[in-house]
Design a protein around this nucleic acid. Structure first.
Length: 888
DNA sequence: GCTACTCGGGG
DNA sequence: GTGTACGAGTAGC
């Protein structure tokens, strides 16, 4: 039988483990396979004369099944021969940590290996079973009441099977509605669940979604229950009936799932919603505010978490995310309205609430299914070996470590245990003292480059290629004096034995990963079927991600194979390589390198025609590559028609790439933020437009004029108020804020006007700054109120606090001064503009000294009065608190 | 400019 | 479960 692996775990029967593999066969039938007779084990390296002592300790332990002396290779530092170690096999996985700790405290023990590997992963590594991978099993059907799969078997023989296809997964999204007694967030200890909605892909008994409720009218897809207990029992039955592989929902991990499970516990509804009748689903808090839900035999994939990891947005609410990614709207029900609808006694209103709940579940489902958010993680599992659940929740280190365990074991090496807190502290200190130097950044030639094209070259997989070129690995590094051993010396002086003496494991893993990736990319190019193409793209992306994780892993203090010297060796080679390339470009080829960072270089060429530039770029790349050795290789994939460099790590470029013989252009920005939570839309618009004019027209003066125009529109109140809204969130009760915060002042104001509609804790509030002579924080106002009362926004605030800081950075790089920016002495000067309509503007009335009240029509360049006092904006009532800094 | 702390999503 | 261990953005020095 062939099986695609969804989940694995084990149960203990009579002090012996039985491994369980949950998966689906080629027909899509769910299967649970049991494996008996596999036991946990680990290795102990005794001290010089400690073998007897260690043996004595373990002989006295009843949990030990057997122990034997084996020859294993030590993982850190090159050694030509293996070492004698004790392999200890136990009966019960749950006893491993206890024995490990006892051995750790024993003076005869030098080091313990592989004593902290989850039993299911120990098993999977030994049988070459990967999460989402296929296995081939010889098995016998059995009857058991312990699991809920279509088929249950005892596995007698097991091994990996080769298959690129994926079984059709069943997705179910869950969303609950609750009412809060306290007014804040609902709390499962006291608040009930009033409705549960669920959406299915593929459909469930002909329905895309259902709602389960304790009030309202029963329909084709609305199930009416008597009470919450019946509702949750019904939910459990639906889960069992549909039998999803993937359970999703928006923020299910942190809200819905813990809430449901807590209510089930209180109401004594069995929580066995997984594929196992004995193990209930549970949630566990991992650090504060981080909860992980586990459902045996299924995978919990939170669409909120997935989106947050894979997209960069300003906000991640279900409404925002659905609008952007699905072009769909959430139903319009404010959360304060939920209890009103629920308690209205009006069946139509309750039906409206049910449809609102239904839509939320459907959106949460669509996000995962339509945006194919699982593809990448599925491939990461296949390629690293970790279960899909861990691929979703865990980080890069876990994936690297899983692969390392398999590959180290295959070559007879053992893997160290994770460092404990004391070890970690020691490593952090070492890292602090020794330092980890990063990549080399070429000094940028700042300003605008638009006379001639810029050829951009990148090292292909730079750090993985360095691992390979220099045979860098914990198993090949030479420590101390290793006279007489052949070695490769890296630029920073670290030495590694060459491949001919001993091929490094990491270099070998990377060679395979990169080869697989090249194959996947090639296959992708030739693939015509969309579905297959997407899978291949996800695969090549996963392979890239995994290969790029190795460098970071070696410098991660919590890693089992943290070796700072390796991380430093890698970056030192990188710095050496990019500097060598830079010298070749400037001294040998005679071109100017205008910038470069870590693995890239930007070369200016005296050519303006794209096709000619392509030809020359290709030639330059060829010349550079002819001087690079081994697998180090630079790729030429893009040209810049213009490039604006502000500082190191900050630039914008008009990029051109060739796709099927056609040129495609795009503005590429690095390190220049155009969107920020605390900036209004006008800032993003102005930044983008300014950069656009500079890059596409090469017209810096025009960009300046454009900016002056924006300031003018602002002063003349011509900017739509929507573009001026700044949003901040209310995190706690407005009365408990220590300092004066603009948005909190507005909440208080709104509460006074109409306490019903004022935003509350947890809401986000949008505000604008209006003209007036009060403190800035008192001049925050509700945009709707501003429209209604026809109030004017404060242009000075918007220019100084919103527009100027980011735009100024751009113009400074172009050599303009701040006074030029503000149009000092020109008609469009901000001061001029504001003074132009003194009658309407009751805010601006020239400048004034804060101490002697001396009045100025234009601010002194120093920002200070002759008396030494600060110059502020004069208003009819006196100087404002805003300090004017003139000049520079 | 750097490090320390906070907060997100959900009803 | 042979456990693990966020990350961006903003406030504060």
């Amino acid at each position: 039988m062939k099986l695609q692996v969804l989940d694995t775990d084990y149960v203990v029967v009579e002090d012996r483990p039985i491994v369980r593999i949950f998966g689906k066969d080629e027909d899509g039938k769910t299967v649970c396979g049991f494996v008996k007779g596999y036991f946990p084990y680990f290795y102990v390296m005794p001290t010089e004369d400690g073998t007897g002592g260690v043996e004595k300790l373990i002989s006295a332990r009843p949990e030990v099944l057997k122990h034997e002396t084996v020859l294993k290779r030590f993982p850190r530092g090159y050694s030509a021969t293996p070492t004698k170690m004790l392999k200890i096999t136990l009966k019960n996985p749950q006893k491993v940590s206890e024995l490990r700790e006892a051995l750790k405290a024993n003076p005869h023990v030098k080091e313990i290996f592989e004593a902290d590997i989850l039993f299911k992963y120990r098993f999977m590594a030994d049988y070459a079973v990967s999460g989402m991978g296929w296995v081939e099993a010889e098995c016998l059907d059995i009857n058991t009441h312990t699991v809920k799969t279509d088929r249950t078997v005892n596995i007698t023989k097991l091994g990996p099977a080769d298959s690129a296809k994926n079984v059709q997964m069943k997705y179910m999204a869950i969303d609950i509605e609750t009412l809060s007694k306290s007014g804040g967030l609902p709390n499962p200890a006291e608040d009930e669940i009033i409705m549960v909605s669920a959406a299915f892909y593929p459909e469930h008994r002909g329905k895309r979604s259902i709602v389960i409720t304790t009030r309202g009218t029963e329909t084709d897809s609305i199930v009416r229950c008597l009470d919450e207990t019946e509702m949750l029992t019904r939910l459990s039955a639906v889960i069992e009936d549909y039998d999803p592989d993937i359970v999703t929902g928006f923020n299910v991990n942190n809200f819905d799932m813990p809430f449901i499970l807590k209510r089930m516990e209180i109401l004594k509804v069995p929580r066995t919603i997984g594929r196992c009748n004995e193990k209930p689903a549970y949630t566990k808090e991992i650090m504060k505010n981080r909860v992980r839900s586990t459902i045996p035999g299924r995978v919990v994939a939170d669409s909120y978490q997935l989106i947050k990891k894979n997209f960069s947005f300003k906000r991640y609410g279900l409404a925002d995310v659905s609008r952007i990614l699905l072009n769909q709207e959430k139903h319009d029900v404010a959360h304060s309205e939920i209890s009103k609808l629920w308690n209205s006694g009006d069946l139509n209103k309750i039906a409206r609430l049910a449809e609102y709940a239904r839509k939320d579940a459907e959106l949460a489902l669509d996000l995962v299914v339509k945006k194919q958010l699982l593809d990448k993680y599925l491939e990461l599992s296949k390629v690293s070996g970790v279960l899909l659940q861990d691929s979703l929740d865990g980080g890069e280190a876990g994936r690297v470590e899983n692969l390392l365990l398999r590959e180290f074991n295959r070559r007879n090496y053992v893997v160290p245990c994770k460092p404990d807190t004391a070890d970690i502290r020691k490593k952090e200190k070492e890292k602090e003292d020794q330092g980890l130097k990063g990549g080399f950044v070429l000094t940028p030639k700042t300003g605008l480059h638009s006379n001639g094209l810029v050829v951009v070259l990148d090292f292909r997989s730079m750090y993985p290629s360095i691992f390979r070129s220099y045979n860098i690995c914990p198993t090949t590094i030479l420590t101390g004096s290793a006279d007489g051993v052949a070695n490769i010396k890296t630029p920073a002086g670290y030495r590694f034995v060459p491949k001919e003496v001993q091929e490094g494991i990491i270099p070998n893993i990377l060679a395979n990963l990169l080869e697989e990736r090249a194959k996947a990319r090639q296959a992708m190019r030739n693939e015509t079927d969309d579905e297959r193409r997407r899978a291949l793209d996800a695969k090549q992306l996963a392979l890239k991600l995994l290969s790029n994780s190795f460098y970071g892993y070696t410098g991660y203090t919590k890693a089992k194979l943290y070796v700072l010297d390796i991380a430093n060796a890698i970056t030192s080679c990188g710095r050496y390589l990019i500097q060598t390339v830079n010298q070749t470009v400037e001294n040998k080829l005679g071109y100017e390198a205008v910038y470069g960072d870590t693995d890239s270089i930007m070369i200016k060429i005296p050519v303006t025609d794209l096709d000619a530039g392509w030809e020359l770029g290709t030639k330059i790349a060829g010349q550079i590559n002819s001087e690079l050795s081994g697998v180090m290789h630079m790729e030429f994939e893009k040209l810049f028609k213009s490039l604006l460099i502000l500082t190191k790590k900050r630039y914008a470029a008009w990029k051109f790439v060739r796709e099927n013989g056609k040129w495609k252009d795009k503005i590429e920005m690095k390190g220049i933020e155009t969107v920020r939570r605390d900036w209004c839309e006008l800032v993003s618009d102005t930044m983008n437009k300014t950069i656009d004019i500079i890059l596409k027209k090469g017209d810096t003066r025009g960009a300046l004029n454009y900016f002056n125009g924006v300031m003018k529109d602002l002063a003349e109140n011509k900017i739509p108020i929507e573009k001026l809204v700044i949003t901040k969130s209310i995190t706690k009760n407005p009365s408990s804020y220590a300092g004066v915060q603009p948005h909190i002042e507005l909440v208080k104001k709104m509460q006074k006007r109409n306490s019903q509609d004022a935003p509350g804790v947890g809401d986000r509030i949008g505000y604008v700054i209006i003209k007036g002579n009060q403190l800035l924080s008192k001049r925050t106002e509700d945009p709707d109120y501003v429209k209604e009362k026809r109030l004017e926004v404060d242009p000075v605030y918007y220019v100084e606090n919103q527009l100027l800081p980011p735009v100024e950075r751009i113009f400074t790089a172009l050599g303009f001064s701040k006074s030029e920016l503000l149009g000092k002495g020109r008609q469009s000067s901000l001061a001029e503009m504001l003074r132009a309509k003194p009658a309407q503007s009751n805010v601006f009335d020239g400048f004034m000294c804060a101490s002697c009240n001396n009045v100025y029509t234009s601010a002194p360049l120093t920002g200070l009065c002759q008396c030494g006092g600060k110059i502020q904006i004069k208003t009819p009532t006196g100087p404002t608190e805003r300090i004017i800094v003139a000049g520079n």
